[in-house]
Nucleic acid binder design. Structure first.
Lengths: 201, 201
DNA sequence: TCTAAAAAGCTAACCGTTAGTGTTACGGTC
DNA sequence: GACCGTAACACTAACGGTTAGCTTTTTAGA
């Protein structure tokens, strides 16, 4: 896939990184709302159109790890050890993601996000996309061609667990509490915990 | 509360209604993206600033029932018969809301929403607000000063039930399926079904 | 009738985003 | 090594949602 990047792709990645770094630095210095796109572009020494060819919106500059999150969720399902059940695998992953986001260095970034309505809104719709991908992965794990409402619901519950726990006073404890609920919800669908390929309507 | 509206408030409400009606008509006729705010204002014979004093954004024109939804959820908790448990009350309300949204007349509106990324995004963040209000109501019902992660999670599950069911092939069936999961999730928190005032950590 | 305040209006801009159109730099091929 | 197709980047100018600043109209209440 990405064996030998080549000069071209290296330059592209460098440009992208430079834009993201510049943006986060300016946002941290003077606030998200107070910094305009034209400023970010100028400071990163690129054209505005270039910025938008790397990032689909101003908010996307802040959520650079967007696709990482999405793929981590999906892989938690597809790449888990074959003996492991679905929900515990997702619980492990959410634990890790919450730990990552509540680490000391990440705090100011998430505070900025919480303070900006635009960023909060973007994050919500991002999570919604993630939930859809996860639902598809869960459906595939059950040999279903497409997600049933049950799959979609569980996927959303998992993503909700992340959002709620991240804002809780005791994030890790919250993850465990919510996953006890998810485990119970999952059990009631008819899928047996340790084995795969059960039916979920 | 709203006993004698008075001329002033009646006129204000009329202006608001005229704007909303005009907007929905134009959107239906030519598509959401193809109609600009300035057009809506002109057709409704008001100034753009007046439009924005009634609606906080272009998307808000489409989700006029925003506050209705929010209050219905909250009241499903606070105004339920005292013998009824929390989750069944919410199930009834979600059933009614889904029925309302999937009625024949409402179909074109929701198709328009599904086709516009901006509207979908707005809807998601709206639901998130509703979930927060619901979480607060649930917490109050349990005599908690503020929502615990458990309350927030259940509130989100309920709102998710609406979103998932609305897009499902068999909406009403989907509501029942998802609420079986929510019931199980709720049972595991330690709150006993028929009585109130149990503990949820 | 007079007044204070709410509601509506107008103008002009701000800012994110995109279309249209070049220009440069790179990768694969002869 | 020169060549060509294409991906990356740049520039200009605009579009469309949104808001600030300020004026005018309308209404409730004294």
């Amino acid at each position: 896939m990405t064996e030998q990047p080549g000069r071209r792709e290296r330059k592209k990645a460098a440009t992208r990184q430079k834009i993201a770094d510049t943006a986060l630095r300016l946002f941290a210095e003077r606030g998200y709302d107070a910094v305009g796109i034209r400023e970010v572009a100028a400071e990163a020494d690129v054209a505005v159109t270039t910025l938008f060819s790397h990032f689909s919106s101003k908010e996307a500059l802040v959520f650079e790890q967007d696709e990482d999150f999405e793929q981590r969720l999906v892989r938690a399902v597809t790449d888990r050890p074959s003996h492991e059940a679905l929900v515990p695998a997702l619980r492990r992953e959410i634990h890790a993601m919450v730990r990552h986001c509540t680490a000391d260095g990440a705090a100011p970034l998430w505070r900025m996000i919480e303070e900006s309505p635009a960023l909060r809104q973007y994050e919500e719709s991002m999570r919604q996309r993630h939930a859809q991908s996860l639902a598809t992965a869960i459906a595939a794990d059950l040999d279903l061609p497409q997600p049933t409402p049950t799959c979609s619901a569980i996927a959303r519950f998992v993503v909700d667990a992340f959002s709620v726990a991240r804002e809780a006073d005791a994030p890790q404890t919250a993850v465990d509490q919510i996953f006890r609920m998810i485990e119970a919800a999952w059990a009631v669908t008819g899928a047996t915990p340790p084995t795969r390929k059960s039916v979920a309507v």
